[in-house]
Design a protein around this nucleic acid. Structure first.
Length: 399
DNA sequence: AGGTATTCACATGAAACTATTCTCTGAGTTAGG
DNA sequence: TAACTCAGAGAATAGTTTCATGTGAATACCTGT
């Protein structure tokens, strides 16, 4: 009781290290984008015809996560919109993130979402896809206008629904009499356009733009700029930013991660009531982010997934390098114990692959020669996280 | 010894199925004129 | 007769199951020496 009181006393009496925490949040849009001037210029010149009432070419933007693709495109288009509205030009920019579950992750939903931006509500289900297209044409073709549709994370959508969708999108223009529509696709996957049907590729007829990852030096600049907004003066230890930039650069130059790392380190420092954010806080932040991510995934997954994960963890506790079959065996027994109908092994194999992708486990395929071919699975978690997550799962599942 | 064929234990792919959610349509029902 | 209700048909989608085919290398099985 006394200690807690003392804690609050200290907490209140001490000034926060943060000046403006929000500027480190994911949603924050910085006013300027360092090292992206060239790209901004490129995007601008490709899309500029829209300001002369001509249809700009389609554009594809590639680059790893956290290289500023989305921000660049948003920034340029919003500038264009300012010009357009001051000149009374009919330009519409629509931004859609194709990854958002239940919003735009299928063809139907994408078109419905686009239509929604033009004020036409379309039911979530029940209509044929053709009908959705029809209604979309109808609403946008009412007025003469140029429409730029920005499709963020478009590779996710195409991977899921096939490239016929892109073909349909390009065909839209043929159906329109008044309006014109061009696309800006943003993708994390550089190889995505090569995987397309050549016919689709040619009908797209688009420009391409590559965003290189930031190097450590650039990250350092970006972080410095951001930290001046976010922290009060002199609250970062000497060398902190360099280390932070280094970590992120090692991680394919992801600026978003770098900023998150900086924020979490700051929060840790603040919780510990230290005056400065130090390099040691960084290491802790790195671990904490990982831990949070894993706990989040593990606790929000559906029960079947949790069972599979629990089975995996239980087996891995005893020995390392477990095979799919063993996991399935234990999983099936657990199901019986809980009187749940077990999934087929086929499905469990997929679940294991997904967990591998998420980084919960590592599951490379190994061939044991005469004794078959399977995955050799190990759980990739820190020792102390392992225990707490295992416990969490056990309780959640009622075992 | 050296080379080929088998064989295991799954991996991987495709298609079909199930269940849920939602719209639309048209038949039947109801209430007011 | 207009308005309303309600069941049934048809869609989209997620999450599976079913069926089919693929696969890497340790062993088993030859072969000729």
């Amino acid at each position: 009781m006394v200690e807690i009181n003392a804690f609050f006393q200290r907490y209140v009496s001490k000034d926060s290290i943060f000046k403006n925490r929000a500027s480190l949040q994911q949603e924050y849009v910085p006013r300027n984008l360092p090292f992206r001037e060239g790209q901004i210029q490129e995007v601008a010149s490709i899309l500029a015809p829209a300001l002369k009432n001509e249809k700009p070419s389609n554009l594809f933007v590639y680059g790893k996560t956290g290289t500023g693709k989305t921000l660049t495109v948003l920034h340029t288009t919003s500038e264009m919109q300012k010009v357009a509205s001051s000149q009374k030009l009919p330009l519409r920019v629509v931004f859609v993130n194709c990854k958002l579950k239940r919003v735009a992750d299928t063809e139907y939903r994408l078109i419905a979402e686009l239509a929604r931006h033009f004020g036409k509500e379309i039911p979530t289900t029940g209509l044929p896809t053709d009908e959705v297209y029809r209604q979309f044409y109808e609403i946008i073709d009412k007025t003469k206008q140029i429409i730029i549709v920005i499709l963020d994370e478009i590779d996710q959508l195409i991977g899921k629904t096939g490239d016929a969708l892109l073909y349909n999108l390009t065909r839209i223009n043929a159906e329109l009499k008044q309006a014109k529509l061009s696309m800006v696709g943003i993708s994390n996957d550089m190889t995505f356009i090569e995987g397309l049907d050549p016919r689709v590729k040619s009908s797209l007829g688009g420009e391409e733009l590559l965003f290189p990852p930031y190097d450590a030096e650039q990250l350092e600049k970006i972080l410095t700029e951001r930290s001046e907004l976010a922290f009060i003066q002199n609250s970062l230890e000497e060398g902190f930013i360099q280390k932070c930039a280094g970590i992120a650069a090692r991680d394919h130059g992801d600026a978003r991660r770098a900023i998150e790392l900086m924020r979490v380190a700051g929060e840790i420092a603040e919780r510990k009531l230290s005056i400065k954010v130090s390099i040691s806080h960084l290491d802790e932040a790195e671990r904490m982010i990982d831990r949070h991510r894993i706990i989040d995934i593990a606790s929000t997954q559906p029960m079947q997934y949790q069972l599979v994960l629990y089975a995996t963890m239980t087996l891995c506790e005893r020995k390392k390098g477990v095979f799919t079959g063993e996991i399935y065996g234990l999983y099936a027994r657990l199901c019986q114990q809980l009187s749940v109908r077990p999934l087929t092994q086929r499905r469990v194999a997929d679940i294991l692959t997904e967990d591998d992708m998420l980084g919960l486990i590592s599951a490379p395929i190994v061939s044991k020669g005469r004794y078959g071919r399977t995955r050799e699975i190990t759980v990739s978690m820190q020792e102390n996280d392992f225990l707490s997550i295992s416990l969490l799962l056990r309780e959640g599942l009622g075992l």
